[in-house]
């Protein structure tokens, strides 16, 4: 008992130091999140000054809204494509650049550059590159008698284009984490493996992959959450079009809340996205968890 009160006495300066951070987080993260939950149970609309508690009505509306399900389906496609490409390519690049060789730091910098650019700049740049009639890409393809292609214009192509732009912009995130994980693996393990007669593929399969599995889990969860909440790229590149072919749930939620001023409904969509993200994170966690490393 004495020890406890003693620890508290010793620890209060630390508590005091982290208190501002907790207060700030509470104000800008926890309070809005709780407020969103409250809103999702109300028929709150910016069109009117009165609102009331409507129970689960907004959630029932989400579940019976065909446009929501359409947007959710497209988001799942976008998420799977982004996840596979970002994890597989991020890992491949990390493995390649983990081998000491000339030009390694230049390549690492090149991968990191798009990540540090603001999304607004990225989209403005890609809009110029991908423009159907005056874009750089179609201009280059024309020199070899190909195109023009409506990268952001054809409904069947627009989603793929957004996935590729997103990959270009965000590949660095998965690469960085996986590269850092690779650097943590003791080289002795590889030496032992080689002595035991393990091939290069075997070294990756039996040493590298098991040891970076926790990082792969983190990357998978982070990429999924980020892909599920994708908004700025689609908003700026296509606005959800052509038709609704790139309308993802993040954009749909924004439209309901801020274009059509239906705040309660937008909040309910946000809650559904949140619950899906939690469910996905749990699935990934249990599917990829390491029973025992050694």
């Amino acid at each position: 008992m004495e020890r406890k009160s003693g620890s508290l006495k010793q620890g209060w300066p630390y508590i005091l130091m982290i208190l501002p951070t907790f207060l700030l987080l509470g104000l800008v993260t926890f309070y809005p999140a709780l407020y969103n939950i409250w809103l999702s149970f109300r028929n709150e609309s910016l069109r009117t000054t009165v609102s009331s508690f409507v129970g689960l009505a907004n959630y029932r509306r989400v579940l019976s809204d065909p446009f929501f399900w359409g947007a959710l389906g497209r988001t799942v496609i976008y998420m799977i494509a982004s996840l596979v490409l970002r994890v597989v390519l991020g890992l491949a690049l990390a493995l390649v650049l983990n081998i000491p060789q000339r030009g390694r730091s230049v390549a690492r910098t090149a991968i990191l550059l798009p990540w540090v650019l603001s999304e607004i700049i990225v989209t403005a740049m890609w809009l110029w590159i991908l423009d159907h009639r005056t874009g750089l890409l179609n201009g280059l393809l024309a020199t070899v008698k190909l195109g023009p292609y409506g990268w952001l214009v054809y409904p069947g192509m627009a989603m793929g284009t957004i996935v590729m732009v997103s990959l270009w912009k965000n590949l660095a995130f998965s690469f960085l984490l996986l590269f850092a994980a690779l650097q943590q693996i003791p080289l002795d393990l590889y030496d032992s493996g080689k002595i035991d007669g393990c091939s290069s593929g075997g070294l990756i399969r039996y040493i590298t992959l098991p040891l970076i599995r926790p990082t792969v889990t983190i990357v998978t969860i982070m990429v999924s959450i980020s892909a599920f909440g994708q908004f700025s790229l689609v908003y700026s590149l296509t606005g959800g079009g052509p038709l609704r072919s790139t309308e993802l749930v993040g954009l749909y939620m924004y439209q309901q809340a801020f274009n059509f001023l239906d705040i309660g409904y937008g909040a309910a969509i946000a809650m559904v996205i949140f619950l899906i993200n939690i469910a996905l994170s749990l699935v990934y966690y249990y599917a990829l968890r390491s029973e025992s490393l050694y």
Binding site: G239, G241, P242, L243, Q255, N259
Partner: peptide, 8 residues
């Protein structure tokens, strides 16, 4: 002629 749905 424009047909985009941008901007609602």
């Amino acid at each position: 002629i424009s047909g985009s749905r941008t901007g609602g």
